[in-house]
Design a protein around this nucleic acid. Structure first.
Lengths: 125, 125
DNA sequence: ATTTATTTACGAATTCATTCGTATACCATT
DNA sequence: AATGGTATACGAATGAATTCGTAAATAAAT
């Protein structure tokens, strides 16, 4: 994926993924739940993102409506692979083990992961 | 961790973690296996890193000897948590599942992960 | 001893992301 | 029609990361 969102862009994408579609004002208000950020700052970022193709916008009415133009899954996969390469010497399993070792995963989540592993093992032995 | 290495710094830490200790020239040559980068660029980065406390250096001889001053585990954990927060809505398990779903994990690695999960579950059954 | 090569230190250019001020257009209400 | 509020567009300041050129110091080779 040649489109790599920056940190701020990822914040905005997060809002759009959860809301589905939103105006600049709505996104800006969501961001301001977390930290203070000016309206025109958010606007500018979203304009840049539109130019990059990270978001699409409907310009029919004066107040433009934005939505994400890339899948959350794809972005997650891209960022994950980048992290695996840059910090885990390319080993996804050591990343997984590090993540699990943090102790922030509930028992039911662990069960779900185990199920997934068994499914993966079954598929390609 | 207040010390967050940048992308380039992480590359250098990677070399130091694998070599244990190295001169600027050695690090630069390792980096040049991947991409072209000038000697003084690497030097400057390592000087900045020394100032930040990311690396330590022995200055007794003219050619300084550098080594990493932070644990690979700690950096991995920091970056992992950051990614979980920024791209996975704080859910470590969804990151794990996304990572496993890539299909880049061998059967023996999957086994090892399963063992780890069972060990973690054993703690509070 | 003079030249050549290697090293560190320093400063600065470049690039990119982030931030916001100002101008302009549009719409609604008076 | 004039006023006030809200929107977009644009330009530019700021700051951080990356890059490298040049100078000065040191060591090695002739």
């Amino acid at each position: 994926m040649e489109n790599k969102p920056t940190a701020s862009e990822l914040e905005i994408l997060g809002v759009l993924w959860s809301k589905g579609a939103a105006t600049v004002r709505e996104v800006n208000e969501a961001l301001n739940q977390e930290r203070e950020i000016g309206y025109t700052t958010t606007l500018k970022l979203m304009q840049i993102m539109a130019q990059k193709g990270l978001v699409a916008r409907d310009e029919t009415s004066r107040t433009h409506i934005y939505k994400a133009a890339i899948d959350q899954d794809k972005v997650q996969a891209t960022l994950l692979n980048r992290l695996v390469d840059s910090a885990f010497s390319g080993s996804a399993s050591s990343l997984v083990m590090q993540a699990l070792g943090q102790g922030k995963t509930s028992k039911s989540e662990l069960e779900a992961i185990k199920k997934l592993i068994e499914k993966l093992e079954g598929g390609q032995p």
